[in-house]
Design a protein around this nucleic acid. Structure first.
Length: 565
RNA sequence: UGUCCGAUGGUGUAAUGGUAACACAGCUGGUUUUGGUCCAGCCGUUCAAGGUUCGAGUCCUUGUCGGACAACCA
């Protein structure tokens, strides 16, 4: 895929990270080696924001013949679970990326990190602090006010060494002591004010079991893990920019040669009408606002997958929005464009009526049936054709009939003609209305046998409708999704909680839908365009043979619906 | 009242000191057996002020506005 902003044909401009990488290559850094990593914490499901990082980490490696590791940053056993590891791996593979044999864990380096921490103590660069969290936090100061030094800061190396060992042997309670790096309590960078690098956690780890009673903090594990793995470019999001000086400080103490990972920060993905933080997404799941992490309304990769989004559409979307240092708000409409663009080329066109209205062809012989040929995809010559059963009684969309139609209504209304897609031109002669409710219950038309599709008949009519044969139609449930929030930036209001902006109409379930019979054989991976309506796929969880459930991925662009009605 | 980072059409990005452009959105029109797709066109942009320069979106200074940072989370 090409970048959206191209200086000229065939020449994609580089983003600022690629430019740095090419500079490093040109300068002969790391012997021309390019090595990245994607470092998720296994404490939740991946969302489309992670996809942006994945595309960059794996994409840079691919582009420059390098490697990209998958490394789970599993330094907090109280929050992390194996279940998440499996889902993360599945999502990355689904997007089309592979880490080969380089599946690593920060916990692989617990031994090395412990030794390094011990070494820091020996060099007088770390100490055990016996104070409670509240005091440590108080002494830390604020961004405007320097911190003050802990009374334990200058305790002896021997004492710290002894305490650290005993902390790991389980001798002390959680929270009673921590190991702190001795950096600078007056630094303007909060992260360098003697950061906590090890804490006591009497908690089994999913990989190391009960080997450890102390666990490194993320800040003490992340940069070093990159170093241990030979990562050349540590790509992460903007909020870690202020952590970089601390990572550099640790690497300064650790490194032996010239090599050190280069951290480059880029903007995270923000989408209109949605929230992206794991915490908020989890809240939606736990409060039942959505039906799980893979609810098709969620921006999680599992949700988007279930909704019908394709890996290609997500990768193209990510490519279109780019990587910068500006905290942007991306229009969710661009994501929808990306999936339409992909599906338009590949999805089989089928007939499906969501809100059925009975249509009777009064001059079509009772009991007669025929099979009409229709193309599977006008955008793909090789997609072939199939047969559609046709008869006297059909269903059309309720929206496609109006008793009193405005001039620009190109569909069915009394006295008007339309074409039934791949079938005949019909004329509306009459209709039946429920006298109590005013609801139209039946439309009566005549068909013109000379206008059969493909017969060469050249008469033109303004409108073409989709339809299904009443006798042959299969029943299905169809779920229509709308954006989860009614506000462009639901978590952008200081005085209001994001849940106040939940869209009560984000899910609409239609249970009486009529589909063409071929859809009885639909498979979960199949993508369809329901003609004139949108793109749909089988729901991977709830659909069963004989009880089909389809999800609408995205509606077709609709220039009629825009303001004409 | 700190440090760091940023600011280009409605949105997102490009232009790497030399004609401000691409995509989406919006609006016209054409084609069409999908009011889709496709095609043609229109709309509209460098935060402000100074400076350097033959020439500044780009470099410098100051200001304005926005974001990040004060978890024994990552």
């Amino acid at each position: 895929m090409t970048n959206n902003a191209q200086p000229e044909e065939g020449k994609r401009s580089l983003n600022f990270i690629e430019q740095f990488v090419e500079e490093d290559l040109a300068n002969g850094k790391n012997d021309g080696r390019i090595h990245t990593r994607f470092p998720p914490e296994p404490n939740g499901y991946l969302h489309i924001g992670h996809a942006k990082a994945i595309c960059l980490d794996f994409g840079i490696a691919e582009r420059y013949n390098g490697k990209c590791n998958l490394r789970f940053d599993d330094t907090n056993p109280s929050k992390e679970e194996v279940e998440y590891i499996d889902s993360i791996k599945a999502d990355i593979h689904w997007l089309g990326f592979d880490w080969e044999d380089r599946e690593f864990y920060a916990s692989d380096y617990f031994g090395k990190l412990y030794d390094f921490a011990t070494e820091l103590i020996k060099r007088g660069l770390a100490y055990i602090d016996d104070q409670p969290a509240s005091l440590i936090s108080e002494q830390k100061g604020t961004p405007n006010k320097p911190g003050i030094e802990s009374p334990y800061r200058n305790r002896s190396v021997e004492e710290s060494l002894d305490l650290f060992r005993r902390m790991n042997e389980g001798e002390f309670e959680e929270g009673s002591r921590v190991l702190r790096a001795k950096v600078d309590m007056t630094s303007s960078n909060m992260h360098k004010r003697d950061p906590i690098i090890y804490r006591i956690m009497k908690c089994a780890h999913h990989r190391t079991g009960d080997t450890w009673k102390v666990y490194p903090m993320y800040d003490f594990a992340h940069g070093q893990s990159d170093y241990f793995e030979g990562v050349t470019h540590s790509l992460c999001t903007l909020e870690f920019e202020v952590h970089r000086p601390l990572y550099d400080w640790f690497i300064d103490q650790l490194k032996e040669g010239d090599y050190r990972p280069r951290q480059i920060e880029f903007n995270r993905l923000n989408l209109t009408y949605t929230v992206m933080s794991k915490r908020k997404l989890l809240q939606l799941v736990q409060t039942g606002q959505v039906l799980g992490w893979d609810d098709p309304r969620m921006p999680s990769l599992s949700g988007l997958r279930r909704r019908g989004y394709t890996p290609a559409s997500i990768r193209n979307f990510v490519d279109m929005i780019g990587y910068t240092k500006y905290e942007a708000m991306n229009d969710v409409g661009l994501l929808e464009f990306a999936v339409r663009e992909d599906l338009n080329k590949t999805a089989t066109r089928v007939m499906g009526v969501l809100r059925p209205l009975k249509l009777i062809l009064t001059n079509y012989p009772e009991g007669q049936e025929e099979q009409l040929e229709t193309v599977n995809n006008p955008e793909d010559e090789n997609a072939g054709t199939r047969l559609l059963p046709f008869g006297r009684e059909l269903y059309i969309e309720q929206d496609d009939f109006m008793e009193d139609a405005p001039k620009k209504f190109f569909r069915l209304s009394p006295g008007n003609e339309v074409r039934l897609k791949s079938a005949y031109i019909i004329k509306c002669e009459d209709f039946v209305k429920d006298p109590k409710t005013g609801e139209i219950t039946e439309v009566h038309c005549t068909y013109d046998p000379l206008t059969k599709s493909g017969s060469g008949e050249s008469r033109k009519v303004k409108g073409t409708l989709h339809w299904v044969s009443a006798k042959h139609a299969i029943d299905a449930e169809v779920r229509l999704y709308d954006r989860l929030f009614v506000d462009e930036e639901p978590d952008g209001h200081k005085d209001k909680d994001f849940t106040e902006f939940l869209n009560p109409e984000s899910l609409e379930r239609l249970s009486n839908c009529k589909l063409e019979p071929s859809l009885a054989n639909a498979k979960v991976e199949d993508r369809f365009q329901f003609t004139r309506l949108g793109y749909f796929c089988l729901d991977s969880k709830d659909s069963k043979p004989g009880n089909l459930v389809f999800n609408r991925t995205v509606p077709l662009k609709d220039s009629w619906g825009k303001g004409n009605r």
